[in-house]
Structure formats: structure tokens, C-alpha cells
Amino acid sequence: MLPLTGGLYLGWALGANDASNVFGTAVASRIISFRKAAVLCAVAVVVGAMLQGESGIHTLSGLTAQTMTTLVIVSVAAAFSVTLMTILRLPISTSQAIVGAIAGIGLATDSMNWGGLVKVVTCWIATPIGAMIIACVLYKILGAVIHWIPMSMLTRDKILWSGLIVVGTYGSYALGANNVANATGIFSGMLPGVSDFQLATWGGLAIAVGVITYSKRVMMAVGSGIMRMDAFTAFVAVSAMATTVHVFAVIGVPVSTSQAIVGAIIGIGLIRGVHGIKFRVLRNIAAGWFLTPAISLILTAAGYAIFCRVSG
């Protein structure tokens, strides 16, 4: 069970960082308290991981052949990349960290499932684009509905208040269903007596602990993120992100909620005018997208080379 520790750490880091994508705006704008948001998010993450987390686990475990040694190298390298990106204050994608690390081992041992990797990378590219398209469509439709139905400003607020909590919970479910594979996916079939369902449950719990123990700081920082969001924009962005991530959970490819929310926000920015978008933050995110898998890959390959030399 010791190798699983690295995966659980990844799950914790994922929960601490990615919960802000689903409940950040609602918490930062004091629509819901952090405590309530964290509990809702943690429960939905575990439920999502248990009900729909196994598809992603199959995909990740099929990317390359693993041994107990390579598992440790992969999980430590991915965890180290995540920590490094956090220190550099660059946005983290645990999906990219773990896939980069797996690719490092795959290349080093010449056992890479290229078809699987292409599928994953294609989904990474499709994630922000899909979220952007969904956000544009939702923004137009919901905007027209809200504009044409006569209502009090307080009723509008109430609808968006309820809506943000509902889509936040849905987004948390999608987060658990999609991202649990990042935490424990590589251990599939490697730990005797541990089924994929149990891995999904452990991974979901690790993410939930990350949400409850360490996500507040990131959630509060979300307000000053890529673009200042009002309740309606946040509702559309989180809805688009949750739908996109859920679709990829069903397909069985772990993707980044951060990239999905960035795509959604850019989509809204394209409709409302890009002047509100902070391009410096976007540049950092883009750097993170390239650096995370690259650092993971290099660290894993280097770690494996050192291990081979030391063990003769």
C-alpha cells in the first residue's frame, strides 16, 4: 500500500487546488460559506469518483506497462512537479503531471501506448475548446432567458444563488468522476486485492480531504483570477466547465478543470469583450500547460535512469 501514498498526495493536492474552479466564485463573493461549499464539494467528489471514476482509471492504467518501482517513480515525479508548479505559483494540472510522468516511464521503457496517449492529448486540447463553445452557447441562451422574463433583481439573484450551488455540486461530481484517475489510476491492477472501485473510493476521499483542509486560500484567490466574474458569468463558466469535464469522465479521459474553466471564461470574454481578461494570468496558465507535463516527463525519465544505474 505504500506506493499509494504518492497517489493520495496527488489527490490531496488536486482537491486543494481544483475545488476553487467549482466553488471559488461563490465562496469569494460570499454567496455560500467556505464550510458549506467544502462539505458539498467533498461529498459530491467522493460520489462522482465512486460512480463514474473507473473509466478514467482504465485509460491511465493502459497508457504504459508499470512495475511497483515505476509506480513509485511516477507518483513521486508527478507529486514533485505539482509541488514545483505550486512554488512557482503556476496553475497546476494534475492530469498533465501524471500523464507526463507516465509518458516518461513509457519512453524510458519503450512501452508507451501511443494510441492512448494521443487520445488523452487530443482530449486536453478539446477541453478548453469544448468548454469555450459550451460557455458561448449557454451565455447566449441563458442571457436571453434572463433578459426576456420579467423578474425582480432579487429573484434573479436567488436563481443565480441556487444555480451556482447546483452547478458547483455538479462540477464537484464531475471533478471526482474525471480526476480521481489522476490520483490512483496508475495503481489499477498493481495492488493485490485492491479493485478499481476501491482505488476510485480512496482517490475520491483523498481529493475530498484536500478540499476540506487546504482549498480555502485558493478559493478566496479566485476572485482576482483571469477575469472578474459576476454571479451570472460564474454560473455560465462553472456550468460549461462541469459539463465538459463530465463528458470526458464518461469518455474516460482525465482532463484539467482549470483548463476547462479557462476555456469557458475565454468563451464568455469573446462575447462580452476581451478587455476584462487578464492576459498576464492567461500567459502563466499557458506556461503551466506546457511546463507541467514536460517537467513530469523529464523527472520520471531521469528518476528511472538513476534507479537503473543504481540497481545495476
Partner: peptide
Amino acid sequence: ALFPESRGD
């Protein structure tokens, strides 16, 4: 009562 933003408004 209400959202902080609506309260202020």
C-alpha cells in the same frame, strides 16, 4: 438578508 452585492446596491 440577500447577497452582499444586492445588499450594498
